[in-house]
């Protein structure tokens, strides 16, 4: 293990969020089993109070997930000098097999926690807790994933061993490490990927606007927003990053959040994550549109979510387009590396 302050902070955050989720889960199970809004039983009253605690806890977990996602990448990036062959976060994440799974789970958990909060918000609008069971079913799904993330992250950080000078073996110690998964994604052809990205993005935006205006195709929009989220990530790696770095060979999805590129990555990723959470929120809430106590507000809220998502995706596209147009890199023909 590397006793780096950021590593300690990462582990702390991860243990705290899994502790909070476990605590929330404990009451979540009770709610799933014993919830009965008609009953005036003491347990029911206790549970009704506990829902406030749980939603507060999970809002914190959500905030913590967002911050720790960036802290995680930061840490990986700053640890890079300690490993042979690692120049930024990509190399550090490849140091042991748990790096990338931990990162993927972090992103997934961020999205899941966001969806839970959307569900929670909608639930609080109705006077009779109409979505409570669904909410806690989702929590029952999120909690194990957050625990799993905690385990992977611990394994990742605790298993790290820096390549430093040991007593007398000098440079022999630094054997070349084989680079792994990270670079594989990057080798997708840049230009076709870009056209694909723009194509799917326009479909998504049109679908979103149609949904906003006519209220049709909510599920389609949710599915498309998940799809375009994944495509956007791939496009950042395979082509957008090239334009930001103005280097036809540099595919790193992490360096764009660094100071050299004026922290543009934060903006891109925050917009993207916000867009996918609100887009998926449309799909999560759509089945509840006919619930009696939510009829009045829910479809308005869903449309607002769709609009938010569409605006964010449009902003993402605009930002990316601006970066591509203003970049001095011109890709006229493709070289396969």
């Amino acid at each position: 293990m590397i006793l780096h302050p950021s590593v300690i902070a990462n582990l702390l955050a991860s243990y705290i969020s899994s502790g909070m989720v476990l605590y929330a889960m404990f009451y979540g199970v009770q709610i799933l089993r014993y919830w009965d809004i008609q009953s005036g039983h003491e347990l029911q009253l206790v549970l009704e109070r506990k829902t406030y605690l749980i939603s507060t806890l999970l809002s914190y977990v959500f905030g913590l997930q967002l911050l720790s996602l960036f802290l995680f990448i930061f840490t990986a990036d700053s640890l890079a000098p300690l490993f042979v062959g690692a120049m930024c976060a990509v190399g550090t994440l490849n140091v042991d097999p748990y790096g990338y799974p931990a990162l993927t789970l972090k992103i997934l958990n961020f999205i899941l926690a966001g969806l839970w909060l959307i569900l929670n918000y909608a639930d609080n609008q109705g006077y009779d807790y109409p979505l409570i069971k669904r909410k806690y079913q989702l929590l029952a799904f999120v909690a194990p994933v957050i625990i799993l993330e905690m385990i992977l992250e611990s394994a990742y950080f605790l298993g790290m061993k820096p390549d430093v000078i040991t007593s007398c073996c000098g440079s022999l110690f630094s054997s070349e490490r084989v680079t792994g998964l990270g670079s594989e994604i990057a080798s997708m052809p840049a230009l076709p990927m870009l056209w694909f990205f723009y194509g799917v993005m326009s479909c998504t935006l049109i679908c979103g606007i149609v949904f906003y205006l006519k209220g049709l195709g909510g599920y389609l929009y949710a599915a498309l927003s998940l799809l375009i989220f994944l495509i956007s990530l791939a496009a950042i790696i395979s082509s957008i990053s090239l334009y930001i770095y103005e280097l036809p060979t540099h595919h790193c999805p992490f360096c764009i959040i660094m100071e050299e590129y004026s922290y543009i990555g934060y903006l891109l990723y925050i917009i993207l994550f916000g867009a996918v959470v609100s887009g998926l929120g449309v799909g999560v809430l759509s089945p509840s549109r006919n619930v009696e106590s939510l009829k009045l507000m829910l479809s308005g809220f869903i449309r607002k979510l769709a609009l938010t998502s569409v605006i964010l995706y449009a902003a993402f596209t605009a930002l990316v387009t601006y970066k591509i147009v203003s970049s001095s890199l011109v890709i006229s023909y493709e070289v396969v590396y």
């Binding site: 302050p5 950021s6 300690i8 990462n10 705290i16 720790s68 802290l71 930061f74």
Partner: peptide, 13 residues
């Protein structure tokens, strides 16, 4: 990075 780390070590607990 330092500020985020610091935030995690103090404000979060």
């Amino acid at each position: 990075e330092q500020l985020t780390t610091l935030f995690f070590l103090t404000v979060v607990p």
